[in-house]
Nucleic acid binder design. Sequence first.
DNA 1: ACTTACGGGACGCCCCGTTCGT
DNA 2: ACGAACGGGGCGTCCCGTAAGT
Lengths: 177, 177, 177, 177
Amino acid sequence: VNAAVDLFQRRGFVATGLNEITRHGRAPKGSLYFHFPGGKEQLASEAMVLAGARYGAMIRAVVDGASDTPAAINALARLMAAGLERSGFEVGCPVATTALEVAATSPAVAAAADAAFDGWQEVIADRMRRDGRSRHEASRRATLILAALEGALILARAKRSPRPLIDAAAELAELLS
Amino acid sequence: VNAAVDLFQRRGFVATGLNEITRHGRAPKGSLYFHFPGGKEQLASEAMVLAGARYGAMIRAVVDGASDTPAAINALARLMAAGLERSGFEVGCPVATTALEVAATSPAVAAAADAAFDGWQEVIADRMRRDGRSRHEASRRATLILAALEGALILARAKRSPRPLIDAAAELAELLS
Amino acid sequence: VNAAVDLFQRRGFVATGLNEITRHGRAPKGSLYFHFPGGKEQLASEAMVLAGARYGAMIRAVVDGASDTPAAINALARLMAAGLERSGFEVGCPVATTALEVAATSPAVAAAADAAFDGWQEVIADRMRRDGRSRHEASRRATLILAALEGALILARAKRSPRPLIDAAAELAELLS
Amino acid sequence: VNAAVDLFQRRGFVATGLNEITRHGRAPKGSLYFHFPGGKEQLASEAMVLAGARYGAMIRAVVDGASDTPAAINALARLMAAGLERSGFEVGCPVATTALEVAATSPAVAAAADAAFDGWQEVIADRMRRDGRSRHEASRRATLILAALEGALILARAKRSPRPLIDAAAELAELLS
DNA sequence: ACTTACGGGACGCCCCGTTCGT
DNA sequence: ACGAACGGGGCGTCCCGTAAGT
């Protein structure tokens, strides 16, 4: 279920109860362990995969629609800021919170989160390769962009303000142009 | 107690039980509500403050010891990477995980986390102002640096590898030089 | 299925899940309620019947093969002790545990268990009648023998030692000779 | 709590929920894990101890009040039969059911059950030693008596009739006189 | 002033026994 | 015959107060 994606994104992995998820998704409780024999961890892993795909598609759309990389960065930041404000700063990255929470305790979920991050990074790197960057350069630069956006998103949620996100993106875009 | 700082850093806010904290800190259970009438939230707030001060001092030492900003960024990344590896990728940022978890539920703790972030950002900005940057430019650039490091730390923990941290820092340092 | 017999014998009725039984018996889960519309109770009842027949045959073989009643008692005790030790004191009486667990809640299963006990008692009584005892005397004496063996089996499992079984049988055999 | 003794005695260990026990004993759930950090197993162990002591005292009273061993056996059987009938055959031995259920899964509880059995056996053996039996003879005979009573109790509960208990006791008493 | 011991609900995850729909 | 669905509860433990003691 993708009710899990939404709730993990808002409250985090640990704070979200399975009951809450089934209620939110109007799914019966008993079926959960039929579809996800691995329990909450499996559910989280699949949520990471789904969120990775969905968010990845969104990132791709923005990145491909932008005229150049700096423009893409700013566009992404604006999009994330809009989502943040629309939800009252509840909805952040659908992967980051869970990734941090389970990094030390659940290797399987951490790996799924990592795969999602990798996918996004690859989307950005792909665009830069098409712009003529070398493979290695594109990869490193994409990592930086993704990291900066994720980090700025944390700062923005803590401050309950889109400023850090907008500022960091603007600065990074400027540096890259 | 600063046992809380350590545990929140490793497992996150929600996953850490009060029992665990008192055990880890060899403090009596009943005393907790005497010293922290606000309960877990107050404890977390004070943990954010303490971690902010400690981490801030460390950042200041590194930043002041570096020859220029790019060198400082790389030095910080190496330091964080070292801590990551030393702890088996358990110990990340003492504020970020908690900040994400409580962003939507506990304004007080979120504010404390924000204050910690602000302190760190100010340390970095301060250095750049001393290097002759304008107030506004220094602030934005410091936000970017902090965001990039925090974001890269997430990626690194998910991947259980210091690579994202080292790469993102190297790329950012290069852009800034 | 007689996978149920084995599992009820080891872990008891309540502690054995239907899933476990189907897995142990390589039977499909959904088929269970086709063959046993009465659910777990019916399964238990039939397990009692099957165990009663099987164990009864074994008792008959031992009893008929022994030279006299005291010898039969000792032989039975040795056989039970051997099964106990072979299984690490996991496998006791296939009926007693379930009988005790459901005595208060499931009359149907309790009746099936009672029938199994009656069958065994009859096997022993039959032998004694053939040895010339009166109907009434044989019945009472068989009840005592069965009770002593069942009771000693409990003591033996609790102590994880065949001693109570061997001792009680020896004492009873001596009294009867 | 001795509500546990009562419920384990009626329904068995596995079938009795902790909630049920706290409800039955009017104790709050949260307090349970303060007094019994070991959880259900510890509760069961202490229930075995308590039941062992209480039942042991009762056995001692009967045994000491009887004129000789055969009379004691019959008196015990009558007492057990009375308890059985009074409760609609719900209340059996407070130790046997649990002992059988946990024999394979919980060594600690099994040991506690064994200790209770040993205590009872010792009470009976003690009486016989005072009657002039040798140490070894008294011990073996006491084991037989205890086993026969426990076993007959199972048969009686399955049959929902005091007959097996009364008959087995009568037969054993006769053999001993 | 500070700590201990204890009481007290609420809920988390897991899994159970059962019944549809095919 | 059987995969899928379905609630209900089990045990553990959490976060929080309070009454008594030092």
